[in-house]
């Protein structure tokens, strides 16, 4: 802690250069990815990476552990799928309907959950998302166990045919980048600054005249809406929406992805989601049960590297020398 007093401006610009180089490298990789890997697989990673990043907006930057984010992710998948299949909307309108639905759901759940903290907050979000899960099991429009099948991918803006895999991929990539961009701006904005102050010292923030519950609710709804963006996108990629995406296991999976990658870092959730999805893909064809492996990974993460992969890198000697600062 003693040597943390001053970081010279030269290491700061060093980190900034490194970050720019890294971002460009990642961008090139993402553009080339569909030609190197199975495109659907990369799209799946991008959807989950966006979901984890949206979840991290709440956990990492506001300090709230939600155990009910599946409701927003899976809920939006249903809304988008229904809009496109039954009402015949274009994909971008379908996704917007999914986002709006997830935001509305986030507003209702948030209004109730935000009054409590810690484990109580987690339990309330879990309970409410389970209620939503059973609503999806029962109601007619979600088609119960079957889910909404064969959702047409449609034409983007009525022009670009998303049944062409390359088109679909670049649409997913664009939405992913927009989503990450929104999160980045949200965190680094006047609003994000107040969120930071609430996380650092809530009482003091109240005493400075801030109605902190409104800021927390704002962050919750934004996180829900972005989780919905990821969910709606996934429904179009896979052409269906099912109960898997609203189940509590999905809420658990996104926690694992975020923890594994690194809470409170921008690219941590993306790295975590990539790892978990890859792991699931690799193990899907083997006899070895996936849940045991992910469970072991989770335990190893909690016991050995609590900051997550990216967080540990930032905190390491190399990371510090490069000018990264571990988020506290």
């Amino acid at each position: 802690m003693t040597d943390a007093t001053h970081t010279t401006s030269s290491t700061f610009t060093g980190a900034r250069h490194l970050r720019t180089v890294m971002l460009i490298a990642i961008l090139i990789f993402l553009i080339a990815a569909p030609f190197l890997f199975y495109p659907i697989f990369v799209m799946k990673i991008l959807c989950f990476a966006l979901f984890a990043a949206a979840f991290n907006l709440l956990l990492g930057y506001t300090g709230f552990l939600s155990f009910g984010h599946a409701a927003f992710f899976g809920g939006a998948a249903y809304f988008t799928a229904h809009a496109m299949k039954e009402w015949g909307t274009t994909p971008e309108v379908g996704i917007l309907i999914g986002v709006a639905g997830a935001a509305a759901l986030g507003l209702v759940i948030g209004l109730i959950a935000i009054r409590r903290q810690g484990i109580y907050f987690a339990m309330i979000t879990l309970a409410l998302s389970q209620m939503f899960f059973f609503y999806c099991v029962q109601s007619a429009w979600t088609h119960g166990e079957d889910g909404i099948q064969s959702v047409p991918r449609g034409h983007l803006f009525g022009l670009i045919d998303l049944n062409v895999t390359t088109n679909m991929y670049f649409f997913v990539l664009a939405v992913f980048l927009i989503g990450i961009g929104i999160i980045w701006r949200f965190v680094n904005s006047p609003f994000g600054m107040i969120l930071k102050s609430i996380r650092e010292n809530e009482q003091r923030t109240v005493s400075l005249g801030y109605a902190v519950d409104r800021y927390k609710l704002g962050a919750f709804v934004m996180s829900a809406a972005l989780a919905g963006l990821a969910g709606g996108l996934k429904a179009i990629v896979f052409e269906f929406a099912t109960l898997t995406d609203v189940a509590w296991q999905m809420s658990g999976e996104v926690i694992l992805m975020t923890l594994l990658g690194g809470i409170g870092t921008m690219i941590g959730p993306v790295v975590g989601a990539s790892l978990v999805v890859t792991l699931q893909n690799e193990l899907a064809t083997s006899d070895f049960p996936v849940t045991i492996v992910t469970g072991l990974v989770f335990m190893a993460c909690v016991l050995l590297f609590r900051r997550g992969l990216v967080g540990e890198f930032y905190a390491s000697r190399l990371g510090r020398r490069l000018g990264f600062r571990p988020e506290q």
């Binding site: 701006r185 904005s189 006047p190 609003f191 600054m193 107040i194």
Partner: peptide, 22 residues
């Protein structure tokens, strides 16, 4: 100090503005 100044100057709820707006 800026945290305290943000609210009275109506720069607390903008989630779309960059930090440099502060």
């Amino acid at each position: 100090v800026r945290i305290a100044l943000q609210r009275p100057n109506k720069l607390a709820t903008q989630f779309w503005l960059p930090l440099s707006s502060l």
